[in-house]
Amino acid sequence: MAKWIPLWLHKLSSPPVFYGFAGKLRPWAIALALILGAIGLYGGLVLAPPDYQQGDDYRIIFIHVPCAWMSLFIYAVMGVAAFIALVWRIKLAEIVAMASAPIGAAFTFITLVTGSLWGERMWGTWWTWDARLTSELVLLFLYLGVIGLYHSFEDRRQGARTAAFLALIGIINVPIVHFSVNWWNTLHQGSTIRLLGPSTMASSMIWPLLTMMAATKFYYIASLFGRTRADLLSLESGKDWVREIAEKEVRG
């Protein structure tokens, strides 16, 4: 074992420890996601002023942009987990990668649908084959490919490893989606929120957007932990720790 990894992280990768840890954290993540989501939506849909050129139509940004960020963020998490799963064959990493795929696919789908609605109102078209829209659609297909490949194997661990390979190669698409608006002439506008340099959005509109970003992150944690726990139970169904939990459930 590598010496630079702290002991608690090693312990966390053991299924029973992670099962308990995720179970304790999940209610907090759900609560934070709901509270922050309510605050963010109220701030975005009610408190934030209308935009100077798009009026009230721009408010779909408070759904569209956080979901788009999550579609990329979850893919990055899935890619890293897939890498760990392929090299170190850690069962938890396989499960995390595979449990992330449906959540990421859902966020990507919401991004495409809300973007389409917004585009119809502002640009005058539901869809156009510009670089940003096309690469985001490719991202959805990558997610669906990972899900499909995972489920096409009888042996779930072998399915997970094969799908992890696709997930890992597909990670190349993440920077392409992000930088597509800079690299090519697109109908889609450039990035509003920038880590380097000033953002081009009034502060009264930015805070609900950042709150929604936090809410979607917590939702992802809650959803991922729930899925991971369920998958851990079914994959480890013959083990003692699962039997103990099952017996406790029956008795309680």
Binding site: D51, G124, T125, Q189, S191, T200, M205
Partner: peptide
């Protein structure tokens, strides 16, 4: 045959713009 409007990435209230 088709005209699409492109908008920029700036968002601000109308008062601030004025």
């Amino acid at each position: 045959t088709e005209v699409l409007a492109k908008h920029d990435e700036t968002y601000m209230p109308k008062e601030l713009k004025d």
